[in-house]
Computed example of a mutant assay.
Amino acid sequence: MNKTKLSEKEKDEFLKTLKQRFEAHPERHKGIKWTSVENRLKEAHDEKLSSLYQMDGPG
């Protein structure tokens, strides 16, 4: 699983998962809005988002 680029479907699903986690724990990030986080993630290089995706996976 050493991909450096996620498919659009993988990106969308991963961002959806991250959003659910973010919204489930608002006390961890007071004053931060999901849209700000999402925009930064979308602007990140594919390799960085892929790394997060891989860290989130099993194993």
Rank of each mutant, 00 (worst) to 15 (best):
E8C: 04
E27K: 13
K30L: 04
G59M: 07
T17M: 09
S50P: 10
E38T: 04
E38P: 01
K9N: 10
R28C: 00
K9W: 04
K9G: 05
I32R: 09
R40H: 12
K3D: 09
M55H: 09
K48G: 05
E23A: 00
W34T: 08
K16D: 13
H25Q: 12
H45P: 12
K33Y: 03
K33M: 03
K16P: 06
M55I: 06
N39I: 09
N39Q: 15
D12F: 04
E23I: 01
S50G: 12
K42N: 03
F22N: 02
L15T: 05
S36A: 08
D12Q: 12
E27W: 08
E13C: 02
G59H: 10
D46A: 09
S50H: 01
M55F: 11
I32P: 00
I32K: 10
E23D: 14
G57W: 05
R21K: 04
L41D: 00
E43A: 14
D12H: 09
T35Q: 01
E10F: 02
R40S: 13
R21L: 03
E47W: 05
M55D: 07
D56I: 06
K42Q: 08
K9S: 08
G59L: 12
E10D: 11
F22V: 00
S51E: 15
D12G: 13
H29R: 06
K19Q: 08
E38S: 10
P26N: 07
P58Q: 14
K16Q: 11
V37Q: 04
I32N: 00
E8Q: 13
N39A: 15
P58Y: 14
L52T: 08
H25T: 09
S36D: 09
H29P: 01
L49V: 11
I32W: 00
N2S: 13
E38G: 03
E10L: 03
F22G: 04
M1L: 12
A44Y: 15
D12T: 15
E43L: 11
G31F: 01
K11H: 03
E13Q: 15
I32C: 05
E10A: 09
V37T: 06
K3T: 12
L52P: 10
K33W: 05
L41K: 05
R21E: 08
M55C: 06
Y53I: 05
W34R: 03
G57D: 09
H25F: 07
H25D: 14
K3P: 02
K5F: 03
S36E: 10
F14R: 03
I32F: 04
R28T: 03
P26H: 09
N39L: 15
A44D: 14
E47H: 07
M55E: 09
M1S: 11
H29C: 02
D56L: 10
S36N: 13
S36C: 01
K9R: 11
K42M: 07
L15G: 00
L18S: 05
Y53R: 07
T4W: 07
V37H: 02
D46V: 05
F22K: 01
G57L: 13
P26L: 04
D56P: 02
